[in-house]
Design a protein around this nucleic acid. Structure first.
Length: 560
RNA sequence: GGCCCGUUGGAGAAGUGGCUUAACUCACAUGCCUUUCACGCAUGCAUUCAUGGGUUCGAAUCCCGUACGGGUCACCA
């Protein structure tokens, strides 16, 4: 008679540690009541996905607001898909959003008492529990080749039976220990499967923190828990790690709901208490009238790097994500006049169940609102950082005279309702071009779309007069009065009413006069407050622009 | 295909049997303000809560069926 112990020994002779030793090595955490231990557990298989940021962010907030622990564990058990360096990149990108783990991987390395926090380095730990299950007869070696598995599946499909390695179709489950021993000694390749005691016709009920009670069929599949490469599958690694790392709240994407019964059965078999689960909705996108998951391949906004590159402040994205996560967040921001995410208490109860469509418009809205609350000095450093990475020419301009850029950023900021021009840093680059001579000169040469009702000679005279007589270095009303005076001298009506009452006695309206100035000075029909623009440009440059030979260029679509 | 989850306007959503002739926000539209644009302000935008049936004096809210959308059925996570 070959015992389970003997099989376990044959399979995993190198395992000497005991489960008890591990339990002692990773003791229960001593935290205040209600504190959540959460985690973000990415696979280092590529760039940081927007959905992952969402998941990571919420797990982070949950831990923070409950005075718990948030750790970052790298799930790299799929060695084939692992991309070197991507874990580091993930961690650094998360850090740019202020999401820095208390434990596990941080930008400055690995820390914490519950490590290693990288699954590929925990091989021995998993095997300790695999061996335990083996000894207890709760797991067994499976010698099926991929071809064998294909055959089983093909048979099931042909006979319209539920596919999978379970019950009567779990071929090697029925092997005797003698047979197992013989095949192991013979050197046949094996994996370890969990021996499920579940019944697919039974439903189990488990509580999801977001969705409430869920009734799902029990697991009856003998899932692989140890792959032929000696590493565990996700299912087993999750159960062991989250138990040993004392996670008490697992938040993950809703795609994990169907496999939760497997995890629950595993926890039960190991005699552990399962953590709470919260299955987060997935962020979707509308594609030809259909909702679908944000796709890495089709959607640029699926990659967090896209937003960073476009120059959305990380804070904006986070605010937007929180608005999708909790329906009451937006009202909270209005009530508190604040976008401080740390002050807002996130709750599962206010979470909607189906995946929100990613809405770039709304992101921009939040971003504009947020940036409007930042002064020039707050905006300058992140703007610089963005430009340095994404637009060297822009960066050079800023760096040459940061104070100048700060003034530009401060335009119309000093009032109760500041402008909301910028949703992202690249907007600043576009909007500030005319302030820089090297960008303005070529435009000036091409000419501007002056209203055809004025001839060039008149425009020249008016602008020249304005250059000479307008007041510089004064407050706005004084300046504006000087402009009005000049306009009046050139037979512009001082109000639209006056003009309407007596159109023949005026050459045009004050609005039209202002447009001429605006075009000459900024090159566009729309611009921020002219007075502030002039004050930033300075008297000399303003005069130069106003006295530059007038070129009319009517079909400049870009002048808007 | 089996199973699971979901379905309130273009988008995010409030709503948990009567206070809903369905909040609020974005987007859109119009108007006011204004030296332009933006801001701000005002107004408009679901006679209806995927759909059919049922329970009830009364349903977006409870029950059943249908449709649609999403997810999942790997030695991937």
């Amino acid at each position: 008679m070959v015992s389970n112990e003997e099989i376990a020994e044959l399979l995993l002779p190198e395992v000497k540690l005991t489960p008890e030793e591990l339990e002692a090595r990773y003791p229960e955490r001593n935290l205040e009541k209600g504190a959540y231990v959460t985690r973000f557990a990415p696979s280092p298989t590529g760039f940081l996905h927007t959905g992952s940021l969402f998941t990571a962010f919420l797990a982070y907030r949950l831990a923070k607001q409950s005075h718990g622990v948030f750790f970052l564990r790298v799930e790299d058990t799929d060695t084939k898909r692992t991309i070197a360096g991507s874990a580091e990149e993930l961690i650094h990108q998360l850090a740019r959003f202020g999401i820095i783990a208390d434990e596990g991987f941080t930008p400055s390395g690995e820390t914490g008492q519950y490590g290693p926090y990288q699954q590929s380095k925990r091989g021995e730990i998993y095997k300790v529990f695999i061996k335990k299950l083996l000894k207890e007869g709760k797991a067994y070696p499976d010698f099926c080749t991929p071809e064998d598995l294909d055959k089983i599946r093909a048979f099931q499909e042909a006979n319209k039976i539920l596919p999978g390695y379970y019950g009567p179709y779990a071929r090697d489950r029925k092997l005797t220990n003698e047979e197992r021993k013989e095949r192991i000694l013979r050197g046949d390749a094996w994996v370890i499967r969990f021996k499920s005691e579940g019944n697919h016709d039974h439903k189990i009920r488990f509580h999801d923190e977001i969705r409430g009670d869920l009734d799902i069929a029990e697991n009856d599949v003998d899932v692989v828990i140890l792959k032929s490469d000696g590493l565990p599958t996700y299912h087993f690694a999750h159960v062991v790690d989250d138990h040993l790392m004392r996670t008490n709240l697992v938040s993950r994407g809703e795609e994990w709901i169907p496999s939760t019964p497997i995890h629950l059965e595993l926890f039960h078999a190991l005699n552990w208490e399962a953590p709470k689960y919260a299955h987060l909705p997935v962020i979707m996108k509308l594609d030809h009238g259909n909702k679908r998951k944000l796709s890495k391949r089709k959607d640029p906004e699926a990659a967090v790097s896209y937003f960073l590159k476009e120059g959305y402040p990380p804070e904006s994205l986070l605010v937007y994500l929180m608005s999708i996560a909790n329906s009451n967040f937006e009202e909270w921001t209005m009530e508190h006049h604040s976008y401080d995410l740390n002050s807002f208490s996130f709750s599962f109860a206010k979470m909607s169940l189906d995946g929100a469509l990613f809405d770039l418009d709304k992101l921009c809205f939040f971003s504009r609102e947020l940036l409007a609350t930042w002064k020039g000095k707050d905006m300058l450093p992140p703007l610089c950082a963005w430009a340095k990475e994404n637009s060297p020419t822009f960066f050079a301009k800023i760096e040459k005279n940061p104070a100048y850029m700060e003034k530009i950023l401060n335009i119309e900021k000093d009032r109760p309702n500041p402008r909301k021009d910028y949703a992202k840093w690249s907007d600043v680059e576009a909007a500030s071009r005319f302030f820089y001579l090297e960008d303005f000169l070529p435009l000036e040469e091409t000419g501007f779309p002056y209203d055809p009702k004025f001839n060039e000679e008149f425009i020249s005279l008016f602008l020249k007069d304005a250059a000479d007589k307008m007041k510089y270095g004064t407050d706005e009303p004084t300046w504006w009065n000087s402009v009005k005076e000049i306009a009046s001298e050139h037979h512009f009506a001082l109000s639209n009413k006056e003009f309407k009452a007596n159109p023949s006695s005026y050459i045009g309206t004050l609005t039209e006069a202002a447009e001429l100035l605006r075009l000459a000075i900024t090159g566009a029909k729309k611009s921020p407050n002219l007075h502030e623009v002039i004050e930033i440009l300075g008297e000399e440059e303003t005069k130069r622009r106003l006295t530059y030979p007038v070129h009319r260029h009517c079909d400049l679509a870009a002048q808007d």
